[in-house]
Amino acid sequence: MRDYLLRRLVSVIPVLFLVSLMSFAVIWIIPGDPTAAFLDASSTPEDVARLREMLGLDKPPLVQMAEWYGRVLTGDLGQSILLRIPVLSAILERLPLTLLLATLALILAVGLGVAAGTFAATRRGTWADQSVMSLALLGLSVPDFWLGLLLIVVFSVQLGWLPSGGYVPLLDDPLGWAKSMVLPTITLAVVQVGFIARMTRSAMLDVISQDFMRTADSKGLSGLYIILRHGLPNAMMPILTVTGIIAGALLGSAVVVEQVFALPGVGRLIIGGILSRDYPIIQGGLLFLTVIYLLINLVVDLLYATIDPRVRLE
């Protein structure tokens, strides 16, 4: 187990190197630099050159890259050009919101998705199965930015129950915080609910037809007990795989949801970084998200072994 962990952690290094190299390449390929955020269209090329020098952008790209790698090795992701604070601080400041949003959405998606998928599987071929699966397909097909705006129109504008956007820190106002998280969480979760429901139904159908399920039934156990005790645990492997993928995908989708609901999270930080060509934010942000993504994958692999003792981590 320890060797496995060590090997997995070491294998992260080349992935991170490749990701950072690719982010550098993309930045070189795309024209434009951070001066565009500071200057308007009638600025002169001399104004641009002067500002480039002031922002330290006049160094050759290779020198900038070497300096960046040198700093990263000491744990320093650099300084944001626009925010003028260390990139790591900028990310860590916003990370709790994004992680919280993704976690709430994941809990909601897994809870609803597994319940809906199991319900549909136990009623295979009935109108209830068809209805749940149609709803799941609808959820999968709805674009999240559109759903977000629709929810805002209904719950904020028409009903006035929930705020249309913005973030309220938990410690400042717990009720306000809860309200500010409801619509973004639902928006983020809906697509994934459909995904998990379909996967759960399919996995459960495989399990339901197994001999041990029939045996349990013939012993006179209650239907709910059989599903919870014997069915779900055996259907968990594919659900867990999907959940792992979703956990990563949620971080990506959070970008859109943070934009619609004006939430100051990591996704919005990176989008802002890309739009204003704040290179250190782009590079640091991508590196950080890659680390999180790899960690999620590692955790999922470790969970396989916990759930199914037949899986050996070698």
């Binding site: 930015f145 977000g148 705006l149 805002i152 129109v153 904020s156 504008v157 006035g160 705020p163 249309s164 956007g165 913005g166 934009q259 619609v260 609901f261 004006a262």
Partner: peptide, 15 residues
């Protein structure tokens, strides 16, 4: 609020 629809909704909801 970068999203135009969300800006208008914020006005209409009184935020």
């Amino acid at each position: 609020i970068p999203e135009a629809g969300a800006r208008t909704a914020a006005l209409e909801s009184g935020a």
